[in-house]
Design a protein around this nucleic acid. Structure first.
Lengths: 211, 211
DNA sequence: TAGATTGTTAATCGATTAACAATC
DNA sequence: TAGATTGTTAATCGATTAACAATC
């Protein structure tokens, strides 16, 4: 139960990258890999890779390295990809629609259960067999359907209100594309995708190189 | 010229957040703010805020705090938002189209000059007055038009090849939405938006809370 | 002047890297 | 057994926080 070792955010942020590279190795039928080889592929130091894995237990074998299939399975489990997650998208504008159409996520185990928007013109439209509903029906939908993750693609102005509705109905995670930091209780996880901030970071780095 | 103080990535990643909050203060006609007040709003410590700003010079005044307008202008300049940037989008699928439609970026000074895709059905279509062209014409387009930033929205398989074309034609920054780490020379900046990794981070955090 | 708050140095904390004994 | 590579501890490095003198 209480296996809290307090994993640092730095480690957590690297886990999906390990997962991606291990999936690729698996596709290429690589059986085993050492921290040194993985280091060359992924760009972290071998030492860091071993430290990271050992936050969760010893997956390797001295003199041999890591079994790719086994390590991949372990990291899947650590990430929680051994379970499925039901999601809803709120806001069917550019980004909401793009996310809805993104097939990649289904493979990870994410099931899109509903799409909601204020715009009446969109109501009844279907994306990937999921109908776009009136945002006013979100609350009752959440009460009748179990939803794990809310994908927040509404404009800044409506984001906090929608987030509150999600939280009040037991949604445990919010993937936030709105350009603000939403307020949620500690029991709810938020991951932000702040596109503007990402683009501004790029511009800074470009200008920095010229100095 | 040589004003390199080697700003750490941690600081750089916070700059767009300062910029966003200062823009909001400005919209709300706030004239001045202390590091303490900004701390409460933005969530960094007052000490960190002062440290961050002092990487670039002293923008404040003892006993008074910071002038919002002035600080906003300084950070705009630090980020490079006093200049305009011409961009192209490569890949007019879900994400490419979403980015093309995103009006937010024009206001920052980004001009979309071209959209490219392999799919002939999309050629000739227009998004925001920009025609979608054959990706085979990207190379000659870049030779004839100055482009600062390439926005990479193609599938994984084509990403590196397109990136090479961008780099070979003098593009200085790549905003990469493809789920892989592209290889570029040191003279080119890359900022990744790895949506899958972001979503997997969210799932980890959700499961972590339950332990 | 007294009060407030910065700029900046010093102390602390945390994350990364190095080293090596354990062991497959 | 000898060679390889992990798991883990110790050393280093860097980032954050605390403290306070400078000064508006």
């Amino acid at each position: 139960m209480d296996k809290k070792k307090e994993i640092s955010m730095a480690v957590i942020k690297r886990l999906p990258k390990y997962y991606r590279h291990l999936a690729e190795l698996l596709r290429n039928d690589v059986d085993r890999i050492s921290s040194k080889e993985l280091s060359e592929k992924i760009g972290f130091t071998a030492s860091q890779i071993r430290q990271d894995f050992n936050c969760f237990g010893g997956f390797g074998q001295q003199g041999y390295g890591y079994n790719v299939k086994e390590l991949y399975n372990e990291i899947s489990k650590i990430l929680g990809l051994d379970k499925r997650y039901s999601t809803v998208i709120i806001g069917a504008g550019n980004i909401g629609q793009a996310i809805a159409n993104y097939t990649r996520f289904e493979k990870f185990g994410f099931d899109l259960k509903g799409i909601f928007d204020v715009n009446p013109k969109l109501h009844g439209m279907r994306i990937k067999d999921v109908e776009i509903s009136d945002i006013d029906t979100l609350d009752s939908f959440l009460k009748e359907n179990h939803v794990d993750i809310g994908i927040l693609c509404v404009p800044q102005m409506q984001a906090q209100k929608v987030a509150d509705t999600l939280v009040d109905n037991g949604v445990r995670g919010i993937w936030n594309f709105a350009p603000l930091d939403i307020d949620v209780p500690e029991t709810v996880s938020v991951e932000n995708v702040h596109l503007s901030e990402s683009l501004l970071t790029l511009v800074y780095l470009m200008n920095d190189l010229e100095k």
